[in-house]
């Protein structure tokens, strides 16, 4: 039961992270491999501030604000480039972030990370076990609803228009720069929210949890479920969290188990990408990066 709850909690946290990235990648056409950066800022921010005596909710909000502020510093220069170039910039940001986490020992604790983070609590009541899992999924559904509202709003329509055709959008008077910046800000804030949940859940953060492997996994979740569909992001997060767990139950010889799991995992992704490049829930062609 504990195991099931653990998987459900992790899936919910990654679903929020995938929703946040989908706004950028699926709706804005801005491919990013820096999801774990904002996830990490939220996690470390909330961890450090609760250790400093702040309530988890206040620390979470502060972490979201910090993540948004840092995302603006990155996005201001980054959105001048598109497609593969933006991807490279986000990879660079991700790598620098990991190096900072590992080496700024006085603040981040270096490779040892930060442990004994208090569990999440609301008005002093700690949320543990099933209660926390429910909280994760309630907030996931709330973000899902808010983001659905955002992408259907005139703002969200402009975001999708500039993904489709940036020159066509500016020629109709659409403010591409501001729209991209706001999308970055919202995506980073929601990622940091997920990060704070993660920190209080695992009670421990280290650089390993927020490196490029995690960013790749989140991007895969978005792509697998179908970039540009919020339900796809949630589905992708659930499938890619469950898949490695399910594969653990395959009757494999002990030595071969781990590599074979990896192989099956990779093969399944390749099959999906070839048979349904638009993702499991995506309709039509995948949007071209940068449009």
């Amino acid at each position: 039961m504990e195991y099931v709850l653990h998987i459900a909690t992790i899936a919910g946290i990654f679903a929020i992270l995938a929703l946040a990235l989908d706004l950028l990648v699926g709706y804005g056409g801005m491919i990013s491999l820096a999801a774990a950066v904002f996830f990490g800022i939220g996690a470390y921010g909330s961890a450090l501030l609760t250790k400093g005596g702040m309530s988890p909710t206040a620390a979470m909000i502060a972490g979201m604000a910090a993540s948004t502020a840092i995302s603006m510093l990155i996005a201001l220069p980054a959105i001048r480039v598109r497609g593969i170039y933006l991807l490279i910039v986000t990879i660079a940001v991700q790598v620098v972030f990991t190096i900072v986490l590992q080496n700024w020992r006085s603040v981040t604790g270096g490779d040892a990370g930060i442990s004994n983070i208090a569990p999440y609590s609301i008005f002093g009541v700690p949320l543990r076990g099933p209660l926390f899992t429910v909280f994760v999924w309630v907030s996931c559904v709330a973000w899902w609803g808010i983001l659905l509202w955002v992408v259907r709003s005139p703002f969200g329509q402009v975001l999708q228009a500039l993904r489709d055709d940036e020159i066509g959008a500016v020629s109709l008077g659409k403010d591409v720069v501001t729209t991209k910046l706001v999308a970055f800000a919202v995506s980073s804030a929601v990622s940091a929210f997920a990060g704070a949940l993660y920190a209080h859940y695992s009670t421990y953060v280290d650089p390993h949890t927020f490196n490029i492997t995690v960013s790749i996994a989140v991007l895969l979740m978005v792509m697998l479920g179908g970039a540009g569909t919020l339900s796809g992001a949630v589905l992708g997060a659930i499938v890619l969290t469950l898949l490695p767990e399910v594969l653990k139950f395959l009757p494999l010889p002990p030595g071969a188990a781990a590599p074979l799991r990896q192989l099956t995992y990779g093969a399944l992704l390749v099959v999906v990408v070839f048979l349904r490049p638009q993702g499991l829930l995506g309709r039509g062609a995948t949007p071209t990066p940068g449009g």
Partner: peptide, 14 residues
């Protein structure tokens, strides 16, 4: 999309 005013497209309007 073409007919939506710039004001309505601002994020705070959303």
């Amino acid at each position: 999309l073409a007919g939506t005013s710039a004001k309505a497209e601002r994020f705070y309007a959303t």
